[in-house]
Amino acid sequence: MIETRGLTKRFGELTAVDNLNLHVEKGEIYGFLGPNGAGKTTTIMMILGLLRPTSGSVKLFGKDLSEDYFGIRKRLGVMSEYQYTYDEMTAREYLTFFARLYEVENANRRVQEVLERVGLRDRQDELIGGYSKGMKQKLGLARVLLHDPEVLILDEPTNSLDPYGVREVRDILLEEHERGRTLLISSHLLSEIERTCTRVGIMNKGRLLAENTMDELRRRLTQEIEIRVDLESAPDGIVDLLSQIPSVVSVTAAPTPSEGAAVSLIIKAKPGAERRAEIARALSNAGALVIGMRTQEMNLEEVFVTITENNISLLTEEGVA
């Protein structure tokens, strides 16, 4: 649905986007991540044709924007980080204007539908100038949904929203995904991306450092996994026994055992799906009674920090970036 090839943008000496190859497939929610100044917005602006690339190309729905300018635009729904609205209009007038611009059938009915969906129906006749930031954010989302676009490009869609509003917007985006819509979400709220996105692209200093599913990113970045084991009883020498397993790096007793456990062990091991089974087998053979075992996984925040600041080579060596 969205494809960039060798996309590059230079502003004088500064390379804002460097040889970017991005692929957003039909029906996926693609999380576009990166610290401030990474080049995400510049990339989105080039995808939308609002900024001319220094080199490279963009294809939307398999076409260059110039091939079908108006047709492609009507299939996109775009929301920027800040909501720029005509403050002298009411929400209903504003959405009616855009419904007509996009030539939406039964415009009035559709306007009411989207207002209901974002929870602004009761406030539709108020001037937008009097809206809070959160309400404007919802109005922006209503505008995006108005013409039922195939691809939604959203820059910080939960910006300015309270936790309840965040959940509402997340639900709407997931509903759109279930309806087969493709979403490209740029956000700094990593937990939001982690909850909603099927695939993630991480950008830093104009380059796409990683593009993969969350699980795959975690797997590639994890040098050691941490397993916490809770035991009802621990035979003598259990620590030494576990240390002898080749994949185990270290074993230590947790300072505070979990509730109901006599002892809790923190085991650091090399990554692999079979580690838990190996450890469970060894404990069972030693006569220990296991009452709990869980693996600590990296969350997106840890992945993000690792990729952008620390360990990029882990990805590049495997050819991800």
Binding site: R73, S80, Y82, T85, L101
Partner: peptide
């Protein structure tokens, strides 16, 4: 200045 120009150009306006 107001940013509304950008929003118009997200849609079918050239």
């Amino acid at each position: 200045d107001q940013g509304t120009l950008e929003v118009l150009f997200y849609g079918p306006v050239d």
